[in-house]
Simulated assay, not measured.
Amino acid sequence: MTQLMSNESRVPETDNGQQGEYIAEQYNLMQRDIRDHGWLNDKVELLINEGVVSGEILEVGMGPGYLGLEWLKMVGRKGHVTGLDIAADMVNVARRNSVEYGLEASTTYQVGDALKMPFEDESFNHVISYGSLHEWNMPMEVFKEIDRVIRPGGRYCVIDLRRDLDRQEISFMRMNIATDMRKGFMSSVKASYTRDELIKMLSGSVLEGAKIQNVPLALCVSGQKSHSKNSSKNKL
Rank of each mutant, 00 (worst) to 15 (best):
R148I: 01
V52S: 01
S228G: 02
Q3T: 14
D166I: 05
V158H: 08
R155T: 10
D15W: 01
L47I: 11
I23P: 00
E145A: 08
V60F: 02
T179G: 00
L4W: 05
G102A: 09
V99S: 09
V158I: 15
N214L: 03
N49V: 00
S203N: 13
H134K: 09
Q31M: 15
M62N: 15
V91S: 04
N7W: 02
L198V: 13
M140C: 05
D196H: 08
L133Q: 10
N92P: 00
D113P: 05
V53Y: 04
M140K: 10
K225V: 09
K183R: 13
H37P: 01
N92K: 15
I159S: 01
Q168F: 10
F119R: 06
V142E: 01
G61D: 01
M62S: 14
W39T: 11
A24R: 06
H80A: 03
M140P: 00
R151D: 01
N97Q: 14
K78T: 04
E141D: 14
N28I: 00
E59Y: 02
I177V: 15
N125P: 00
P139H: 09
G17H: 10
Q168I: 12
C157K: 04
C220R: 12
L165M: 05
V93A: 07
Y156I: 08
S226I: 06
L115D: 04
K144P: 02
D166T: 04
R35E: 08
A87Y: 02
V93L: 09
K233C: 08
A218K: 15
L198M: 15
S205D: 01
P12R: 09
D121F: 02
I170L: 15
R151E: 14
L47R: 10
S203R: 13
M140H: 08
C220Q: 08
T194A: 07
F143V: 11
V52M: 02
Q26L: 12
V221M: 13
L40D: 15
R10Y: 01
Q18A: 13
N214G: 06
E56I: 01
S132K: 02
Y130K: 15
S228Y: 01
D89S: 15
D15N: 12
D196F: 03
L236Q: 09
N28G: 02
T107R: 12
D196R: 14
K43Y: 14
F185M: 12
A105G: 00
T107Y: 08
I57T: 09
L165N: 04
P216H: 11
G83H: 04
L207K: 05
V81K: 13
L84M: 07
R95E: 10
E50I: 11
S171A: 15
V215A: 03
T107P: 11
M30V: 14
S188N: 05
L161E: 04
D36R: 15
S98T: 13
Y101C: 08
P64Q: 08
L165V: 10
S54F: 03
Y101M: 08
W71F: 06
S222I: 02
R151N: 11
Y101P: 05
L46G: 12
N97Y: 05
I199E: 14
K200C: 02
E8T: 10
V99I: 15
